[in-house]
Design a binder for these strands. Structure first.
Length: 616
RNA sequence: GGCUGUGUAGCUCAACUGGAUAGAGCAUUUGACUACGAAUCAAAAGGUUUCAGGUUCGAAUCCUGACACGGUCACCA
């Protein structure tokens, strides 16, 4: 392994401190950062922290260090001092050599494989309705995170747990049973997950109707009189009462709950219906996943995992990690970990939601031997995962230290929060159709691919539309709650996916035009232009950036990087000729530069799950 | 109320984890296609980083306290 520039410079400064001032500079006191764009140079030493050691003024230290580094390090060609900041200019020879030997490699940025498996769980939908915008953010994050980890050398397993049982799917089932008249996705021509989702919506409608009628009854008025607070209007009260109504009064609620019981009892007809409707949903999901370009290594089904975990609770009890109450229920006291008491098993021996998560974690460890597992789940479940991880830690599970909740903010619309009950949910399929539609219009205006077949054109347009959508979502840091404006998501100019794609397309176009050329002269090229230095410098940052992003599980930094690199390419393109450059050396060098930039843009976008077309 | 996240240009987001004059895009105004692709480039304008203290050479970033908006605090999933 050759040393990186920061390592070389750091060591150089350390030696300089010893030789010039006779002091030992520890690496913490040497702050090295990349130089801001408005100054000459690529790396900057901040000398303020060194004043105590050297007992000199910051700018004098900077001057001393600059002289020393320029004289003693081949990599440092020049320097300038502004206040206490020492800006170092790296030599053209170093950059040129780096570009032609390292950055040009096909797999540039790929870390060597390590013998460590990471499981990434994402998407994990319910099966009662189709995927929506919230899932899209989840899926993009999960996919990118897994790509990043793979690029960083990990062996990655992508999984999801499909929430295929429970009251929600029973609602869809019941509504279908009562109101469908035997309709199927085939008979109506609908996408099958949408078909099922429509019955879920229908159930809610029918339930609301029933609820409305009930509110006029005497029973309802009695309930109102007894339970409503002083300042509540009847409408307000009934709004909050709907869950209780569902459980205690509703005929539809009773029927749905009965269906759940039948399912748990393995009643044949119910199970058959459940199978049929879930099969429809899976067919629909598969299509959506395919359009999004994601795949999974293993699917877990809640219907199979929901019974797991009980043995672990028992084990925890034996170990003394968990406690039993007088009624026989089992709980964990997590108050010393700033969490609350958490019940893990009811007195009747039935389990709680979190119990199955214990079991599923163990199941995955057994399946993959992974000591790191990442759960991509929205931040509304922060507390749940904090609890889950604490429990696994107390059970002394071997993978407990490697658990991570990749928590992300939920997606709002400009009009506010998405609410399925109010019908404001943005459907994933509709969204994709919309961006592809916009890409079609934009493409027609430009007419740059008309010599290609219709098939090829459609494929490119799909890639452009999906790039716009994905980039728009993934560029926002995960932790941040984001506002999704559909109008902005179809933008194709400025800080967007298509902008990056366009930069890539340019690097390909110039190579197509170049044909067969002798590129050996590239190494003779001297006097790099600022735009060239900028590009190479950015390329240089890529591997470390990928490693950092993988460690932080933050794809948004990769998105910003791709944008910045594309921007530099566009500027370079505008300022310099490539094929008619001033010398054969310049032509060759710039072509190689284009190749390296193109490769890196492609690799970066691939990390985000975004394809780059050859033309657009 | 406890815990937790967020608050930066009109809008959507950055800021290398304490460094230089807080940066991009969109929108607005203006300029550049007879060039290897204008889905591009260049320029203007836009800020008391929610507020008040503190820590130090230096704060959007760290600490304290407010304020605003989310989330969460089940023997629900």
């Amino acid at each position: 392994m050759t040393k990186t520039l920061p390592q070389i410079l750091q060591a150089g400064v350390q030696r300089a401190l010893t030789e010039l001032y006779g002091v030992d500079g520890s690496s913490e006191e040497i702050t090295l950062q990349t130089t801001r764009r408005e100054f000459a140079g690529e790396y900057t030493v901040v000398t303020f922290p060194l004043t105590r050691l050297a007992r000199k003024k910051p700018d004098e230290i900077a001057e001393d260090l600059g002289q020393y580094l320029k004289a003693n390090l081949a990599e440092v060609a020049d320097f300038n001092v502004i206040k206490g900041f020492l800006n170092l200019v790296i030599s053209d020879a170093y950059w040129s050599d780096f570009l032609l030997t390292a950055a040009i490699q096909e797999d540039y940025g790929q870390s060597p494989a390590r013998d460590e498996t990471v499981v990434v769980e994402f998407s994990s939908p319910n099966t009662n309705k189709p995927l929506h915008l919230g899932h899209v953010r989840n899926i993009l994050l999960g996919w990118s995170a897994s790509q990043l980890l793979a690029k960083a050398g990990y062996n990655v397993k992508r999984v999801q747990i499909i929430n295929d049982r429970g009251i929600a799917i029973c609602k869809s089932m019941l509504a279908w049973q009562r109101y469908s008249d035997g309709a199927t996705p085939e008979s109506t021509g609908q996408k099958p997950d949408h078909f099922v989702g429509d019955y879920y919506v229908l159930f809610e409608q029918k339930f609301q109707e029933e609820y409305q009628q009930w509110q006029a009854t005497e029973v309802a008025q009695q309930v109102l009189a007894q339970h409503a607070k002083a300042e509540q209007t009847p409408a307000e009260f009934f709004k909050g009462f709907s869950k209780k109504y569902f459980n205690d009064y509703s005929e539809l609620g009773q029927a749905a709950k009965q269906m759940l019981l039948d399912w748990e009892a393995g009643e044949t007809e119910t199970v058959a219906l459940w199978r049929k409707m879930n099969a429809w949903v899976y067919a629909g999901f598969e299509e959506t996943y395919a359009r999004l370009g994601v795949t999974f290594d293993k699917l877990y089904y809640e219907s199979e995992t929901y019974v797991l975990g009980k043995d672990m609770v028992e084990l925890g009890l034996e170990k003394g990690a968990f406690l039993a109450r007088e009624d026989g229920s089992i709980y964990a006291d997590l108050t010393d970990a700033k969490l609350s008491e958490k019940t893990l098993m009811r007195a009747d021996g039935t389990s709680i939601y979190i119990t199955q998560d214990l079991g599923t974690a163990r199941l995955r460890y057994d399946d993959f031997g992974a000591k790191r597992m990442i759960y991509v789940v929205a931040d509304e479940q922060n507390h749940h995962f904090a609890t889950l991880f604490e429990l696994l830690k107390r059970l002394e599970e071997p993978y407990a230290a490697g658990l991570f909740h990749l928590s992300y903010g939920m997606v709002d619309l400009p009009t506010g929060r998405m609410k399925s009950r109010e019908g404001t949910v943005v459907d994933a399929d509709d969204l994709m159709n919309e961006v592809i539609h916009e890409a079609t219009i934009a493409s027609q205006e430009r007419d740059a691919t008309s010599e290609l077949s219709t098939e090829e054109q459609k494929a490119i347009i799909r890639q452009i539309g999906m790039a716009a959508l994905k980039f728009h979502i993934i560029k926002v840091g995960p932790q941040k709650r984001m506002t999704f404006d559909p109008k902005e998501s179809v933008d194709m100019q400025g800080q967007t996916g298509p902008y990056v794609q366009n930069a890539y397309v340019r690097t390909r176009a110039v190579w197509r035009k170049a044909g067969e050329l002798d590129l050996s002269a590239a190494a003779d090229y001297r006097d790099l232009a600022p735009a060239e230095r900028e590009l190479i410098n950015q390329l240089y940052a890529f591997p470390a950036l990928v490693r950092d992003a993988a460690e932080a599980l933050d794809p948004s930094v990769v998105a910003m990087y791709c944008y910045e690199l594309a921007k530099s390419l566009h500027k370079f393109w505008h300022d310099h000729s490539i094929l008619s450059a001033e010398s054969p050396a310049a032509v060759a060098f710039r072509l190689q530069l284009c190749k390296a930039v193109g490769n890196t843009l492609s690799a970066g976008m691939n990390l985000l799950g975004i394809e780059v077309p050859e033309r657009m």
